[in-house]
Simulated scan of single mutants.
Amino acid sequence: ISHIEILGSRQNILKAKLEILDGLSPEGVVILNGDDELLSGLKGLLRFKTLLYGIDENLDIWAYDLSSRGEEGVSFQVRTEKSDMELFIPAPGIHNVHNALAGIAVAECLNMSEKEIREGILRFTGEEMRMNITEKDGIKIINDTYNAAPSSVRAAIDVLCEISANRRRWVILGDMLELGDWAEEAHKKIGKLVSRLGIEYMVGIGSLAKWYIEGANEEPSGRTVTKWFSTAAEAKPYIKALVQKGDVLLIKGSRMIKLDVLAKELLTEGLN
């Protein structure tokens, strides 16, 4: 639901995204996430050949036997019209399987071999501020501060849980912007999720981030320690005072909240 504040509805977002097809040649191929209910409904309605990918076995390209290996990455099987492959993504997060499937669909349209596909995925490296994991003073920081939307925040929280084992967990979350009338509900849902997962600490940063805290505190059985700050600069002393060796910190928010600066300062200055 990113950009819903501007476009008003998911249907309008879809309409805007589909404008890209105006430049597609008649022989072109449209590749869509078949696990998305709006996109899957386009099958057979477009004037182009359409391929759907996802984890539903009825799709053109589908993944199964997904297995997280923590920080090392994710292994999975993928079946297409042409082949059945076992693949490994050297990046944490089950959500990356969908990203890989889109690439595999393109590769098959270009008649690339299984070997080329496998080796290409193995060469994957993440971009700066996108799920970068660094350890400093015995404290692990997941820097995913490039941007934030409800789906990407949930995916980042999944990674935090996958790699933290029995260590104390922190989620340090900035506002999710451009959500319009959905903003309060979206932030509260994330807060409730954090509380249900039993994550030990949650810090909300930004005017909208108060709703993370409210959502977490609405969970009757929640034990998450919550704290809200208006800016990252105000939050930093609190984090540094309470963080302990062995903790795992997820830092994520929309770019305007400047949590990328907070992540860099915590790594540069140290946490103990």
Score class of each variant (00 low, 15 high):
238 Y>S: 15
145 T>W: 05
195 S>L: 06
207 S>T: 08
185 E>V: 06
187 H>N: 12
170 W>M: 14
237 P>S: 11
187 H>F: 10
226 T>I: 10
130 R>Y: 07
170 W>A: 15
240 K>V: 09
176 M>N: 00
243 V>P: 03
241 A>V: 11
249 L>R: 09
228 W>F: 13
199 I>S: 07
207 S>W: 06
228 W>G: 10
142 I>S: 13
254 S>T: 10
154 R>T: 04
204 G>F: 04
138 G>D: 04
191 G>R: 01
205 I>Y: 01
253 G>M: 14
215 G>Y: 06
208 L>G: 10
158 D>H: 14
250 L>F: 13
164 S>N: 05
220 P>F: 01
166 N>V: 09
135 E>I: 03
182 W>G: 03
245 K>I: 00
158 D>C: 13
229 F>H: 01
193 L>I: 07
206 G>L: 07
260 D>K: 01
228 W>S: 14
135 E>W: 04
163 I>G: 02
258 K>P: 08
206 G>N: 06
236 K>I: 11
244 Q>F: 03
238 Y>A: 13
139 I>K: 01
193 L>D: 11
141 I>Y: 06
167 R>S: 08
192 K>N: 10
238 Y>D: 15
139 I>V: 14
221 S>F: 08
166 N>I: 10
156 A>D: 02
221 S>Q: 10
139 I>H: 03
234 E>V: 02
150 P>S: 08
189 K>E: 15
183 A>Q: 15
226 T>L: 09
256 M>G: 13
227 K>M: 12
230 S>I: 13
171 V>W: 07
242 L>S: 15
194 V>P: 00
165 A>Q: 15
172 I>T: 07
248 V>H: 07
146 Y>E: 00
172 I>V: 15
234 E>K: 12
202 M>L: 15
172 I>Q: 02
252 K>F: 09
260 D>T: 04
139 I>T: 04
142 I>N: 13
157 I>H: 12
241 A>N: 15
262 L>D: 01
193 L>G: 02
203 V>R: 06
132 N>I: 03
245 K>G: 02
141 I>H: 00
188 K>S: 08
238 Y>N: 14
171 V>H: 11
159 V>Y: 10
190 I>M: 00
143 N>H: 07
164 S>Y: 00
224 T>N: 02
191 G>V: 01
157 I>G: 12
227 K>G: 09
215 G>K: 06
246 G>H: 04
130 R>E: 03
192 K>G: 13
201 Y>C: 13
210 K>P: 02
194 V>R: 03
225 V>G: 09
210 K>Q: 12
193 L>Q: 12
137 D>S: 00
237 P>F: 08
237 P>V: 12
242 L>R: 15
